[in-house]
Lab assay of single mutants.
Amino acid sequence: DRIFMTRTEALEFLLKAHQTAVDKIGHPSHKQTPADHAAIEALDRLLLDVRARRVDQFQINASAAQIIVTD
């Protein structure tokens, strides 16, 4: 599946995904793992790359739809 978004929409989408990941590892019942921190770092890099126009398409994980940034 493909989803087309403007750059602004894609950045909002990534910010929400980032916040969800941060909230998940901050929850008291969740045991933090290196994979959790790696996922947040990957989202940080992706946010910067989309914002800087170095990336025009991405996929958060293998089961997610491919996001295509349109400007």
Rank of each mutant, 00 (worst) to 15 (best):
A64G: 14
A21P: 01
D71K: 05
A21G: 02
H27E: 12
V69W: 02
T33L: 07
T70V: 14
L48R: 14
D49S: 04
T70L: 14
F4I: 06
T6D: 03
L15H: 09
F13K: 02
Q59E: 04
K31A: 11
R51V: 08
A39N: 10
S29Y: 05
A38I: 10
Q66A: 10
I40L: 12
P34Q: 11
D71L: 06
D36N: 06
A39K: 07
V55K: 04
H37V: 14
R53N: 12
R51A: 15
V55D: 01
T8E: 12
Q57N: 10
V50Q: 00
L47R: 05
V55R: 05
T8S: 14
K16F: 09
D1Q: 04
I68V: 11
D71V: 09
D56F: 15
D71Q: 06
A65D: 05
A62P: 14
D44N: 15
R51W: 08
D23L: 05
I3P: 01
V22R: 10
H37A: 12
L15T: 11
T33V: 08
E12H: 10
A10H: 07
I25T: 06
A65W: 08
E9G: 04
T6Y: 02
F4S: 04
A65T: 12
A38P: 03
P28K: 09
D56R: 13
D36H: 05
A64W: 09
I3K: 05
A38F: 11
E41P: 02
Q19H: 06
G26Q: 15
L14G: 00
Q57S: 14
T33R: 06
H27M: 13
E9P: 00
H18A: 06
L48K: 15
A17W: 09
K16E: 07
I3T: 04
V22W: 06
R2Q: 11
T20Y: 12
H27D: 15
D44R: 15
L15V: 10
K24L: 12
K16C: 06
T33A: 07
A52N: 13
L11I: 14
L11M: 10
K24F: 09
T70N: 08
I60Y: 04
R2M: 11
L11S: 02
F13T: 03
R7Q: 04
H27C: 06
T20Q: 15
S29C: 06
T20I: 14
E41M: 08
H30T: 07
D1C: 11
D1E: 14
L14C: 01
A10Y: 01
L43K: 00
V69L: 10
V22Q: 08
I25H: 06
A21M: 15
Q59W: 12
R7S: 03
L48D: 14
Q32M: 15
R45E: 04
L48C: 07
G26V: 10
F13M: 08
S29E: 13
N61Y: 12
T70E: 09
I25Y: 07
E41K: 13
R7V: 07
D1V: 03
D44F: 15
A17S: 05
A65L: 12
L15R: 14
K24T: 09
P34G: 07
M5W: 02
V50S: 00
R2H: 12
A35W: 08
L14I: 10
K31H: 13
S29T: 11
I60A: 03
L43M: 05
A62E: 13
V69T: 02
F58W: 02
R45T: 06
Q19L: 06
E9R: 05
I60D: 04
E41N: 09
E12W: 11
K24Y: 07
L47E: 01
Q66G: 03
V55W: 01
E12T: 07
L48M: 12
A38E: 11
V69Y: 02
H37T: 14
D49R: 04
E12I: 12
L43Q: 02
V69N: 01
M5Q: 01
S63R: 11
D23P: 02
D71P: 07
K16G: 05
V22D: 02
R2D: 04
R54W: 04
A38N: 06
R2S: 07
A52R: 09
F58H: 00
R45A: 08
A52F: 14
R53Q: 10
D56E: 07
T8R: 14
L43A: 01
P28Y: 02
A65P: 14
R51H: 09
F13W: 12
D56L: 12
D56H: 15
R53M: 11
A39C: 06
Q19C: 05
H37Q: 13
L46A: 01
T20W: 10
A35R: 07
I67H: 02
L48S: 14
D56W: 15
H18V: 12
T8L: 11
T20V: 12
A64E: 11
H18I: 15
F4V: 07
A38R: 10
L46F: 02
R45F: 04
L46V: 02
A62T: 11
Q59T: 09
D44K: 15
V69Q: 01
I3L: 09
F13H: 05
A39E: 14
K16W: 12
R54L: 11
A42K: 13
T33K: 06
N61Q: 09
D71F: 04
K24D: 05
A17F: 07
T70K: 11
T20A: 15
I25A: 08
D56S: 15
I40F: 04
F58Q: 00
A10G: 01
A10T: 02
R51Q: 12
L43I: 13
A39M: 15
E41R: 13
L47K: 02
A21E: 08
A21V: 10
P28N: 08
R54G: 03
D23R: 12
K31C: 05
P28E: 10
P34E: 11
P34A: 13
T8F: 09
I40D: 01
K31S: 14
H18L: 15
I67A: 01
S63I: 12
A65Q: 10
T33E: 10
A21L: 15
L15W: 14
A21R: 04
V55N: 02
H30A: 07
L46Y: 02
Q32N: 13
R45V: 05
A35P: 05
I40E: 02
M5H: 01
I68K: 04
